[in-house]
């Protein structure tokens, strides 16, 4: 029994004020130049108490969205991409143990639309969460001769961790 208690106590929970940190790698393949270019950055985000309209379902929420400062190396044109991470901590975990909903979106903009890749994961704990990967939609550009140039973005989140336990 004491082992169970130890296990329980060692399980990370997110509370208001809990901070997380993660690194991102964004890689974009530009078919026009055949170049592959990357952007990497470290972000921090914080859980906050849920607003009144959702607090019956969620105790804390982490909502993080940001634009990515990416430009095509071939012509300096801004590539419209942003990504978001949203984590919802359930007030009442499901009978099967699910306590967190983790959403990730990656695409050209908000609101979520057909051009934004989105997925959702249900986790029992944030303890083991390390990262995500998602392929973005190809962004096409006006034809050059008989070619249709496009960039193909990939987002990888890694080293996800709670930093103020």
């Amino acid at each position: 029994m004491k082992y169970l208690i130890v296990l329980f106590l060692s399980s990370a929970s997110a509370f208001a004020g809990t901070k997380v940190q993660f690194d991102i790698d964004v890689l974009v393949v530009d078919t026009e130049t055949k170049n592959v270019f990357t952007y990497d950055h470290t972000y921090q985000a914080e859980f906050k108490p849920a607003d009144d309209d959702v607090k019956a379902a969620f105790s804390e929420l982490l909502i993080f969205h940001t634009d990515l400062p990416l430009k095509r190396p071939s012509n300096g044109e801004v590539i419209p991409l942003n990504f978001g991470v949203e984590i919802m901590h359930l007030v009442h975990p499901k009978p099967d143990g699910m306590a967190y909903i983790v959403d990730l979106d990656f695409g050209p903009g908000q609101p979520l639309n057909d051009h934004t890749r989105w997925f959702s994961t249900y986790l029992r704990s944030l303890d083991g969460l390390v990262g995500f990967s998602v392929n973005g939609e190809e962004i096409t550009y006006p034809k050059v001769g008989d070619r249709t140039p496009f960039v193909a973005p990939v987002l990888k989140i890694r080293n996800f961790k709670i930093i103020n336990e």
């Binding site: 057909d114 997925f119 249900y122 986790l123 704990s125 083991g128 969460l129 392929n135 190809e138 890694r158």
Partner: peptide, 28 residues
């Protein structure tokens, strides 16, 4: 080879038992 029209993602965890589910949308 290039996943055109593919929708989904990869999540990584230190323990497979931590997953309770994963939902991915297909192409609209």
């Amino acid at each position: 080879a290039i996943p055109v029209d593919s929708r989904g993602s990869v999540i990584t965890m230190t323990e497979l038992t931590g997953f309770d589910g994963m939902l991915a949308q297909g192409k609209v």
